[in-house]
């Protein structure tokens, strides 16, 4: 479950479920402190003016989030919508919920020695009163963002429209907004 173990498992083939080391409530509280606003946007702009500062900030994010959540630096963090259990540590990198292969006791189908990260996410989201978040439709990952800082992308507003509002049990047949890539808001920045 440690960062070391994650790396070893990755060498053996892809993402492995990670049990977060921070309570969901604490993580939500931190998110509120660091929420997007005038100050954080100014900070992100200032950091991104310098490639060295961007690299430094991104490295700090990588180290801390890898330790806490097994972060794999997808660059478009889903943690605030998944009870702060990282869906990119699912061996299938599922962003919309668990696969059908979860064992009866909540074991991961691919790594039975680990707990399914979505079982973890569901439990944490429920405990934090955020179960509705799991009913959001998550748009496909923009693979170009891998390795980027999610915080900088978030503060700069580049991760808007990553997910929809929670889908509701209405009978009106309301369709979600289009899935189209141009609406993702994740237009990658490319070399800065």
């Amino acid at each position: 479950m440690s960062g070391v173990m994650t790396s070893a498992a990755e060498a053996a083939g892809g993402p492995t479920p990670v049990r977060p080391r921070m309570r969901a409530g604490t993580a939500y509280a931190w998110h509120r402190v660091l929420a997007r606003g005038a100050v954080t946007r100014w900070l992100a702009r200032a950091i991104e003016r310098s490639p060295a500062a961007t690299r430094g900030f991104t490295s700090a994010e990588r180290v801390s989030k890898e330790h806490l959540f097994g972060c794999r630096m997808c660059g478009q963090c889903a943690l605030p919508a998944t009870g702060y259990a990282c869906p990119m540590t699912c061996p299938k990198e599922l962003r919309n919920g668990p696969c059908g292969g979860v064992g009866g006791d909540g074991r991961c189908e691919v790594h039975p020695e680990m707990r399914c990260v979505w079982v973890e996410a569901h439990e944490r989201a429920e405990q934090a009163g955020r179960a509705d978040d799991l009913a959001r439709l998550q748009r496909p990952v923009d693979q170009r963002c891998r390795g980027e800082s999610s915080w900088l992308n978030h503060w700069q507003g580049r991760d808007e429209c990553m997910w929809t509002e929670p889908v509701r049990p209405d009978r009106e047949g309301v369709q979600p907004r289009s899935l189209l890539g141009r609406e993702l808001g994740l237009t990658p920045v490319g070399p800065r």
Binding site: P98, G100, V119, H122, L134, A135, L137
Partner: peptide
């Protein structure tokens, strides 16, 4: 497809709703 029997059982119907809304 959906698996009504796999954990988290409390989320399975919701997950199917997501798929239904998706199309």
């Amino acid at each position: 497809v959906e698996n009504p029997f796999a954990p988290p059982v409390g989320f399975r119907a919701r997950r199917l709703l997501k798929k239904a809304v998706a199309g």
